[in-house]
Design a protein around this nucleic acid. Structure first.
Length: 99
DNA sequence: CGGCTGGCGTCGT
DNA sequence: TACGACGCCAGCC
């Protein structure tokens, strides 16, 4: 199974209303410091819309990037009940999903 | 709080 | 097939 298939599968475990970080997702698939790799794969995203890549944020609390634009990502997260302020997650620890 | 460096899979040459 | 550059970060200074 390809790495992106693992990431894609793991990401689907994240329920609506909860999010994860690039680092955690990377570790979930067996990578130590694969944060950037995860982000890169999300960008290449082989299955747009099917993969909720908008539920993946940076460990610093910032939204991070998004293939369709950060504002779109922010809007989707807000729609799932996640509080965002000035481009950052307000209660990251509270909305963070644990694998 | 801002900036620089580390570290790893993919893509292109 | 092999090597180098790049990218929706993370962590330390």
């Amino acid at each position: 199974m390809n790495l992106q298939q693992k990431i894609y599968k793991k990401l689907l475990e994240v329920p609506k209303g909860q999010i994860t970080t690039y680092g955690d997702l990377a570790k979930a698939v067996g990578l130590k410091n694969g944060q950037r790799v995860v982000g890169q794969i999300m960008n290449k995203n082989p299955h747009p819309v099917i993969i909720p890549c908008h539920r993946v944020v940076m460990s610093t609390g910032k939204i991070g990037g998004y293939a369709y634009g950060e504002h779109v990502k922010t809007r989707m997260l807000n729609d799932e009940g996640i509080q965002i302020e000035n481009g950052k997650i307000v209660n990251l620890k509270d909305t963070l999903y644990r694998f």
